[in-house]
Each structure stands twice: as structure tokens, then as C-alpha cells.
Amino acid sequence: MSWPVRPTQQIGTALDHVAGMTLAAVLAVLWGLPLLYSVWTAFHAEKYSVQFDLTAPWTLQNFVEAWNAAPFGLYFINTVLLSLMAVSANFVLCTLTAYGLVRYRFRWAGPLFALIMVQMLITPEILIGPNYLTLARLGLIDTIFGVALPYLSSAFGIFLLRQTFKTVPASLDEAATMEGAGMWRVLWDVYVPLAKPVYLAYGLVSVSFHWNNFLWPLIVTNSPEARPVTVGLSVFATVDSGVEWSLVNAATLMTTAPLVLAFLLFQRGFVDNFMRIGIK
């Protein structure tokens, strides 16, 4: 620790240190082990999945077999399309709403904001029943667009951008307006550039949300052509009877690899951005 320590406290500090190390070790093992075990079985032949022989040969066979056993390539494309669709719509729609709420005054602005915030609490997951019926009436069951639709407009995104836009100095806005910039110009040249870090953070949160979403796409999709990886993985893993654990583990790692790799590459920025969202 950086502050001065009196001699009498040194024994106590050493004990604290040991306690801290123990807690750290226990937690790190508990948190790391399930994933490490899965990595072990995924990269070894089935017969080694219960015996930890460090000399056991490593193999990619499980990944090859899992990849060929289900249309994972298609599932990946679906997930990427779904995430892109959702994130780009989130960016555009939340920006417009936040801009309208911050830059203009109108009678119902307060109640309108309260109405929007309802979605922070009553999220689409809770309304799966009625939303399924709505989607069926629109003829969008079993489509990627149908999976994305309830999430395109997001109260969380609106809230985040509203908070950010509120910090844009009035003088900047006024100067741009004096120079003859219209509503769209001011949005694009003044507001959007100042919110760049928030877009990055929100984009990451939004992509990981849609990449990981499961219940709603499970209900809405029933063919491989519309299924995202999460649903594909669960379909693959619950064809129980015959499927080997090593294949299930290989498939699990395979479907999560892109996000995990992205995280490892951008770890610093990722964590900082999550923090930034949390502080607001």
C-alpha cells in the first residue's frame, strides 16, 4: 500500500496480505475452472475428457466434427446480420430521439421521456407472449428482421445519448446555427462527434447483448435460415442422446470465440468503455 505503515501494523498487514492472496486464489480458480475444463475436453479425444493426462495429444477433431454436424456457418452469418441490424438501428433511432428531447422544447417532453423510460424496466423479454402475437400478425415470424424488431428502439440508448447531448455547450450549437447550419447539419457536425466515445461503448454493449440473446430468438425462429448461434448451439446441444460432451464443448467454445477474441484484443478499451457507461 502506498500510505505509510507503522511498525506495529506490519504483522497485521502481512496477515491481510495472506488472506487477500487466499481469497484471490480461491475466486480465480472457481471462476477459471469451468472454462478451462471445457477447453480441455474440447481439444482432446473423448476418452481423455475424464482423465487429466498432461501428455494426452491435443486435437482439433472435435471442432471439425461439430462444425460439420450443424450449419454453424449459417448461424454465424445470421448472428452477424442480426447484430449489425440492431446496432445500426439503435444508433440512428436513439440519436434522433435524444436530439429531439435535448435540443427542442415541447409541451409533452417530460411525460414522453417517462414513457420511454418504461422500457428500461419492462424490457422486451418480459413481453414475449404479446410480442410474439404482434410479430405473427406482421408475418415476421422466423425472420432475422423479426428477431431484431422489438429491440431496434432502445430506452437505454436514448437515455445514454440524452445524457451526453445535454453536455454539449450551447455556444457551439448557437455558433453553428449562426453560420446557417440546419437541424441535420448541427446534429451531424456538433452533437454526433462529441458523443463518439459513448457510441463506441454503447455499440459494444449492444453487440454483445444481441450476440448473446437467446429466449426471444428461440421463440421466434424455427428454421436454420433465421437462427442465431445461441439458438443453434442449444439445438445442437439438446439433441442429447448421441451428442458427445467433447463435441458440445467444442461447439460452445466455437460460438463464443469471436466475442472472447475481440475482448482479449481490445481488453483495455472494452473495460474502460463498460466503466464509462456505468459511471453515467
Binding site: 430521439t97 414522453l112 420511454i116 418504461v118 404482434t134 424488431l149 428502439s153
Partner: peptide, 17 residues
């Protein structure tokens, strides 16, 4: 500014509620 986002929010949050 508010048309599309509000229609979507109402359709999938307030209306189903």
C-alpha cells in the same frame, strides 16, 4: 426525429403491456 422510434417503442412495449 421522434416518429419511427416512438412507433417502435409503443408497438413493442406499451401496446403489449
Amino acid at each position: 426525429l421522434l416518429g419511427v422510434p416512438l412507433v417502435l417503442l409503443i408497438t413493442f412495449t406499451h401496446y403489449p403491456l
